[in-house]
Amino acid sequence: MKSLLALALSFMFAACSTPQSEPAPTGNSWIALFNGHNLDGWTPKFAGYELGHNLNNTFRVEDSLLRVSYEGYDTFSNEFGHLFYESPFSHYVLRLEYRFEGKQAPGGASWAYKNSGAMLHSQPPATMGLEQAFPVSLEAQLLGGDEAGSRPTANLCTPGTHVYLADTLTTAHCINAEGPTFRGEEWVTIDLVVLGDSIIHHVVGNDTVLTYTRPHIGGDFIPDGYAVKEGSPLSEGYICLQAESHPLSFRRVELLPLKAD
């Protein structure tokens, strides 16, 4: 695979972003957001529970993996969870290595089978309502397939947000990527190239499977009383990992910071 730094740079200078906002590397140093030992720097938020409560020890570290586990559940009752990293980011490359494992928790919705995600430009975790199921964010959807049928990974879902595709406003809640379907429990690598509120690329292996621009607040999933005005551009935010009822593990969660001039 070509250097992710080179890939990010080629995206930056070829993208339809504003000319005055051309990011550059900040020293070509990756940051390990997950240290392989514990959840230091991460905070969970589950629908129906206060910030910081790790329901049933769903998010855990085992065998140097960050696991989303449902071993402690008798049944899943829409306790959607998100694990937030402590710092917001604006311009960066996020690399994830993940795999789905085992069986979905009893009670999980059919759409949540082998379904998780990484939320980009998320609202701060402390601003989520007690019962709020999903943060306002851009979800890079992680999907696995069954024995047959197409179910591409690296789609986009947009809770409380809208984006543009090829300069056209797109209000669909989920947008399919032109990506592969992974059917087993193999490790999958996804790179997310995020350039503030200009352009975002989803990359699987060597292929850019989805590109969108001008992310902003909008749509039917904005919480009541949300403090940010509809139409406001999303130039930065938090990163969080989802728990939607199917077990999965991450063995790499790392970030290459970029900076805008």
Rank of each mutant, 00 (worst) to 15 (best):
H216C: 13
D197M: 01
M128E: 12
R151K: 14
S77H: 08
Y49I: 07
N54V: 11
P159M: 05
L94H: 05
L241A: 00
V204C: 07
P19H: 09
D40T: 13
A227F: 13
T161W: 09
T211L: 07
S17E: 05
E86F: 07
Y113I: 09
L120G: 01
T181M: 09
T181Q: 07
S17A: 08
L55W: 05
Q20W: 14
W111V: 11
E244W: 03
Y85E: 06
Y238C: 03
A6L: 11
C240D: 08
P106K: 10
S198T: 07
W187G: 03
F76A: 00
Y73R: 01
S77P: 00
H246T: 10
L195V: 08
A154E: 01
S198G: 08
F13H: 11
A15R: 14
I175D: 07
T213V: 04
Y92H: 13
V253S: 01
F34T: 10
D207G: 06
R67K: 15
V61Y: 08
L33I: 01
F182R: 07
C174T: 12
A105Y: 06
H216D: 03
H82W: 13
T18P: 08
G117F: 05
A140C: 14
G184Y: 08
P180R: 11
S249G: 10
P247K: 12
C16H: 13
G218L: 06
E236M: 08
Y49E: 10
L94W: 02
N155Y: 03
N56G: 03
R252P: 00
E185T: 14
L248W: 13
E50T: 05
M1Q: 11
T18A: 11
F84A: 01
N38I: 06
N56I: 01
L138K: 10
H201I: 06
D167L: 00
A133V: 04
I222V: 13
M119W: 10
A126M: 05
T181R: 07
V209E: 09
D167A: 10
R99P: 10
Q242F: 06
R151A: 11
A32D: 15
L165S: 05
S122A: 15
Q141H: 03
G36N: 10
D261H: 12
T43G: 02
L33G: 00
G225V: 12
N115Y: 12
P223G: 01
E185R: 08
